[in-house]
Design a protein around this nucleic acid. Structure first.
Length: 644
RNA sequence: GCCGUUGUAGCUCAGUGGUAGAGCGUUUCCUUGGUAAGGAAGAGGUCGUGAGUUCAACUCUCAUCAACGGCUCCA
């Protein structure tokens, strides 16, 4: 007998060779029907795989993330089976689960897949699912595996096999489809009840542009139709809060072919949001001891050779303009300019930390395929600053930058983000990263220490550092699920030396400062793009382009409305009157659609009593107030940056 | 940059090898109405751009630009 330990600590004995699914059946048939996979001694296994040793066991269902990913992985195989039926001879590469669903990439030869094909494949998948075919695991020797795929003429799987160790190779077969796969899989295809193929895309084999382009099919599946319907509904809702749609509807920004790709035009409403953000940043940075500077948009080539940016990033800078034999580049970053300000006057340790802040305008020639609304643009206004400090000061400085993030995130109600400690990849020293192995390890440890000592949850990811040092990136997701770095806090041990930056230390000797690059609000472009989605266009009062709309019930109340407008504007509020000869219902509807925080309905009653009837966006009629009470209340809401 | 898809009125979209339509918006007039769409009339497009095929191209072909979905990239 073998001992099986359950998550609650209970231990029960079973016959050797029993499976997780068998064990589930001894608990209840209902549970057994829901089991997708099992965690055996911490490793995810097929639910039907026999267990021969004492083990811990956790049954995985749709409720567990690993249950879902197993389900989707198996769905990818099911899709491959259906695709093979539709396109005989197709060769597959890999078909993993992703955050929402799965994909499989494949070589279709000269054939092309269309939206109509997807419908056919979906149908075929449903048929195959209904057959309830079991996913059968088979261990196979490397030689036999190679023979199998050589006979099939499948160079992709053969390539995969090259990197696999003999003795650890498994095949999975369901119905008529066999695939090289480490598994695990769900017990049988019948569990897949709802199927939606979402997308076709082309992408390079192994992500290398020198390789052949493969066709990717993305899909998602569920154990019941209801969840699929909910998912599709959620997608619809997500589309509604896409910043590209909201930005247009709310008059925040636009693009124009004659200006250029990735070069947003900020419209009057967008400019107001920018102004509020800059005001917040300037106040915050002033309090934190930053000094504000302003630097030109271009600089000579020599500057970027000194900084070391040019060899790394030349391709993504706008090509230079040449004047009198000198090349000038549009700046893609502010740091070299700031370093020159640091260097302009001799520094003593008493001047440190020396903090320079600028809303610098940078231009980056991002690859055309990368552009994405406001989230990825070619003209960006960075909430940039550079802190020059000693090693001893580093901890406090880096920590206070992190605290600045958190202060901002609290104001904006940003809760869903991940702090990522981005490290270098030792294999790429001297190529992607400056070749200073010891300094990398030292500064990475310094950054990690700040995170640990401040009890900040974070993840570590290799090969995501800047070329000059490690960093913390704050990762967020757009409403359609794309990941972006919103804010960043970086250490730079390289540029100080490159620019011969130094200060006189206490021993009266020259010393190179450490540099912190930081952008807690990222760029105007990405931050406002993010905020649009975060708030679904419903900006809190302090950020709203138009804060109060006065809605007179008829022309007769225009005098009162005009006086009210004057009062509001004197109080510093952004207000307008809707003077159109429309009914009040219409004015309310139009103003609601523009997501204006407050509406003041003005009719006979209000005029006689010197009142305003207040209506708040999303909340409806709040009743009447005196003008002075209303102004007092919204002044507080505005000043305190309260959420809507 | 690569692959795929798309490009028709300000917006959302329909449509055909014989030089274009809807809803919303906009303009004008009427309506002066109390918490999410009052009525009527009108204006508005060389169908992304350029070339080719054709008696004839918005429609077919090619090129190009842009957007979108992915891949790669992100100081």
């Amino acid at each position: 007998m073998i001992k099986i330990t359950f998550p609650d600590g209970a231990v029960r004995e079973f016959q050797p060779g029993t499976s997780a699914l068998d064990i589930a059946k001894t608990i209840s048939e209902g549970l057994a029907r829901k089991v997708l996979a099992a965690k055996i001694n911490g490793e995810v296994w097929d639910a039907v795989r026999p267990i021969y040793t004492d083990s811990t066991l956790q049954l995985l269902t749709w409720n567990e993330a690993e249950g879902k990913s197993t389900f989707w992985h198996s769905s990818a195989h099911l899709m491959a089976e259906a695709v093979e039926a539709q396109f005989p001879g197709v060769k597959f590469w890999v078909g993993p689960p992703v955050e929402h669903g799965f994909y499989y990439d494949m070589d279709l030869g000269d054939r092309k897949i269309t939206e109509e094909d997807l419908v056919v494949i979906e149908k075929k998948m449903s048929e195959l699912a209904k057959q309830g075919n079991e996913y059968v695991r088979k261990e196979i020797s490397k030689a036999d595996a190679i023979k199998y795929f050589e006979e099939k003429g499948d160079e992709y799987k053969l390539d995969l096999l090259e990197h696999l160790e003999d003795g650890h190779i498994t095949f999975y077969t369901q119905g008529g489809f066999t695939d090289l796969c480490r598994g695990p899989h769900i017990p049988q295809t019948g569990l897949i009840k709802a199927i939606k193929l979402t997308n076709i895309a082309g992408a390079y084999w192994k992500g290398d542009e020198k390789n052949k382009q493969l066709t990717w099919i993305y899909g998602i599946t569920f154990p019941n139709q209801k969840e699929l319907d909910e998912y599709l509904h959620m997608l619809e809702e997500a589309k509604k809060r896409d910043h590209r749609k909201l930005g247009k509807e709310l008059g925040i920004f636009t693009f124009d072919d004659d200006i250029g790709p990735g070069l947003p035009l900020w419209m009057p409403n967008g400019a107001i949001v920018i102004e509020q953000l800059e005001k917040l940043a300037k106040e915050t940075e002033e309090q934190a001891g930053y000094k504000r500077v302003v630097t030109p948009h271009i600089a000579k080539e020599a500057l970027y050779l000194t900084s070391g940016h040019l060899p790394y990033y030349q391709d993504s800078m706008y090509p230079p303009m040449e004047l009198d034999g000198t090349k000038y580049y549009l700046k893609a970053m502010n740091c070299p300019h700031h370093h020159k300000i640091f260097a302009a006057e001799p520094k003593s340790y008493k001047d440190l930390p020396y903090r320079l802040a600028e809303y610098g305008t940078c231009y980056r020639y991002e690859q055309s395929g990368e552009l994405f609304g406001l989230m990825r643009v070619r003209c960006l206004h960075m909430n940039d600053a550079h802190i020059y400090c000693t090693k001893e000061q580093f901890f406090e400085e880096f920590k206070s930058v992190n605290e600045m993030y958190l202060k901002y995130f609290k104001i904006f109600g940003i809760e869903k983000y991940v702090m990522r400690l981005s490290l270098h990849d030792p294999a790429k020293l001297g190529k992607k990263y400056v070749d200073e192995p010891a300094l990398w390890l030292e500064t990475e440890a310094m950054v990690r220490e700040v995170l640990i000592r401040t009890k900040t949850p974070f993840v570590e990811v290799e090969d995501e550092a800047a070329f000059y040092g490690p960093k913390i990136d704050v990762q967020i997701w757009s409403t359609i699920g794309r990941e972006f770095t919103l804010a960043t806090n970086q250490v730079d041990f390289a540029q100080g030396r490159r620019f011969n930056l130094e200060f006189t230390n206490k021993e009266n000797a020259p010393e190179i400062p450490l540099i912190i690059h930081r952008a807690p609000l990222g760029t105007h472009e990405r931050f406002i793009g993010f905020l649009l989605e975060h708030y679904a266009g419903k900006f809190p009062l302090w950020l709203a382009p138009l804060q109060v709309k006065i809605l007179p019930i008829s022309e007769k109340f225009m005098d009162y409305a005009t006086r009210l407008l004057g009062d509001l504007r004197s109080a510093g509020m952004r207000a307008e009157i809707d003077s159109r000869p429309e009914k009040i219902g219409r004015k309310i509807r139009d103003t609601e659609l523009l997501k204006v925080p407050y509406m003041l309905v003005i009719g006979e009653k209000e005029v006689n009593e010197n009142m305003v009837a207040v209506r708040k966006h999303g909340k409806g009629d709040l009743g009447t107030k005196s003008i002075s009470d209303f102004i007092r209340d919204i002044e507080i809401e505005n000043r305190e940056k309260l959420p809507l």
